Computed example of a mutant assay.
Amino acid sequence: MDKVTDRWTPEGERLMKELRELAELEVVIGFQRGKASEDNGTDLTDIAMWNELGTEGKYGGEHIPSRPFMRDSVDKHKAEIEHILKAQEEVLLSGGTARKILETIGIFQKDLMQTEIEQGSFAPNKRSTIRRKGSDKPLIDTGQMKNSVNFLIRKKGSGNKDA
C-alpha cells in the first residue's frame, strides 16, 4: 500500500498559521493601570471600577452609584458584537491576519464603551457634583476617562504585557 501524505496549499498553511496565532492571543478592552490618572494621582482604572460597580462609601467615604458602562457596552449591543465577530471570520478566510482581526474587535468594542460613557442612561449626579462639574452628565467631567478607554493585544495569560 502506498503511503499517503497530506499537503497544505499555501492558503491552507496561511490560514492554519493565523488560527494558531488567534489561539495564542487575546484582545483586552478597557483601562490599563498606570496609563492615566486624575490630578490627585488616583488611577483611572480605580475610578472606572468605582463607577462601573458603584461603592458603598468605602472609597474616600463617598457613595458612588453603579453606572455600568462597561457591562452595558456588551449587554446592550450583543447583536452588533455577533455581527462584527461573524464578519471577522470572513476577513480571516479572505486573507486577513489574526492581529488585524483582534485590532478590529478592539476598536469596535472601545467605541461601544466610549459611546456608553457618553450616552448611557445612568443614575444622576448628586447636586454637589453638578455644582462642582457644572454638568449633570454622569461619567463625563474632563473627558479623560472616556479618552482613556483603550485596548491591547496580548498573549493569553500574560497579564498586562502587550504581545
Rank of each mutant, 00 (worst) to 15 (best):
D2R: 14
V4G: 08
R7D: 10
T9F: 13
M16I: 12
K17S: 12
K17D: 14
R20I: 12
R20E: 15
E21T: 02
L22E: 02
E24W: 08
V27Y: 03
G30Q: 07
R33T: 14
A36R: 11
A36N: 11
A36Q: 09
S37C: 03
E38S: 09
N40A: 06
T42Y: 08
D43T: 05
D43R: 05
L44R: 02
T45R: 08
T45Q: 12
A48M: 02
M49F: 15
E52M: 01
G54C: 06
G54R: 05
T55P: 05
G57W: 14
K58V: 09
G60R: 11
G60W: 07
H63P: 06
H63Q: 14
S66F: 08
S66Y: 06
R71Y: 09
H77K: 12
K78Q: 13
E80M: 14
I81P: 00
I81K: 05
E82Q: 13
H83Q: 15
H83S: 13
H83E: 15
I84D: 03
A87V: 13
Q88K: 14
E89K: 13
E90V: 08
E90S: 13
L92V: 02
L92D: 07
L93D: 04
L93A: 06
S94T: 15
G95A: 06
G96N: 09
A98H: 09
K100E: 13
K100G: 07
I101V: 10
L102P: 01
E103G: 12
G106P: 02
G106E: 04
I107C: 00
Q109T: 04
K110M: 14
K110W: 07
L112E: 02
L112W: 01
Q114C: 09
T115R: 13
E116H: 04
I117Q: 01
I117R: 00
Q119L: 08
Q119F: 10
G120L: 06
F122P: 00
P124W: 12
S128T: 14
S128D: 10
T129F: 02
G134N: 07
I140F: 11
M145R: 04
M145I: 10
K146N: 08
F151C: 01
R154Y: 01
K156Y: 08
G157H: 07
S158G: 12
